Simulated assay, not measured.
Amino acid sequence: MENPEPKKNPKGGRPKGSTKAKIDPFREVRVGRPDVLVPDEKTMKALRRYGAANVSYETMAANLGVSLTALNNFRKKWPEVDIAIDQGRSNIDIDIAVAQIDVAVKKRNPQMLIWLGKQRLGQTDKVETKNTGDISIHIDAEDAQV
């Protein structure tokens, strides 16, 4: 059975039943709606900034002026988008770690030194209890159950 040709749209434009953008073989240009998001430097810089702020994908989409579905499709089409977001997240993690160490070491902040000692050196708050006397247990016959 042959594939039926798409129905012609009486108002012109794209044929009915055609949902994907097509390449016009005669002009070798893309026909259809342009991409809402493109991975240009401005967009990638914004995505790195959003990653650093650890904002949700919903917030990223809203700030870029697109739907969450459009952002997710953009992420699927261009893998470097997720890389840019991850770079932003990683860079801020490094900045935070450096700032914490600066506060602890350079400013000699005792709370930060204790916290870093626990995190990096495995130090713990250990409370040792030692029994120094005899332990005796008295059971009254009245309280005992048989």
Rank of each mutant, 00 (worst) to 15 (best):
M1C: 08
E2S: 11
E2K: 15
E2W: 07
N3T: 12
P4D: 11
P4V: 10
P4W: 15
P4S: 11
E5D: 13
E5M: 14
P6M: 00
K7N: 10
K8W: 12
K8Q: 14
P10V: 14
K11I: 07
G12P: 10
G13Q: 05
G13A: 08
P15D: 04
T19S: 13
A21M: 14
K22D: 11
I23E: 14
F26I: 10
F26Q: 05
E28M: 11
E28Y: 09
E28T: 03
V29Q: 03
V29A: 10
V29P: 03
V29S: 10
R30A: 06
R30I: 12
V31N: 13
V31L: 14
R33K: 15
P34T: 02
V36A: 15
V36P: 00
V36C: 09
V38Q: 15
P39A: 04
P39F: 05
D40F: 10
D40W: 15
K42P: 02
A46G: 01
A46E: 12
L47P: 00
L47G: 04
R48Q: 11
R49Y: 07
Y50G: 00
G51E: 05
G51I: 00
A52E: 12
A52H: 05
A53Y: 11
N54G: 02
V55K: 14
S56T: 15
E58H: 09
T59W: 06
A62S: 13
A62P: 00
G65M: 04
G65A: 02
V66Y: 00
V66G: 00
S67P: 00
L68C: 01
T69A: 15
A70M: 14
L71V: 02
N73R: 02
N73A: 09
N73I: 02
F74L: 06
W78I: 03
P79M: 01
E80F: 01
V81T: 15
V81C: 07
I83Q: 14
I83F: 08
I83E: 13
I83S: 07
A84G: 06
I85H: 13
D86S: 05
Q87A: 02
R89L: 02
S90E: 08
D93C: 03
I94P: 01
A97F: 06
A97Q: 07
V98C: 02
V98Y: 10
I101K: 09
D102C: 03
V103Y: 10
V105T: 04
V105I: 11
K106L: 06
K106W: 03
K106C: 01
K106Y: 04
K107M: 05
P110N: 04
P110R: 11
P110I: 08
M112C: 02
I114T: 12
W115F: 05
L116M: 12
G117T: 09
K118I: 07
K118R: 15
R120W: 03
R120Q: 07
L121Y: 14
Q123I: 07
Q123A: 08
T124Y: 07
D125S: 07
K126Y: 06
K126W: 04
V127W: 15
E128I: 11
T129G: 07
T129M: 11
K130H: 11
K130D: 05
T132P: 06
G133R: 10
D134G: 04
D134S: 09
D134Q: 09
I135M: 08
S136D: 04
H138P: 00
H138R: 04
H138C: 01
D140P: 00
D140V: 01
D143H: 09
D143G: 00
A144K: 15
A144W: 15
Q145N: 10
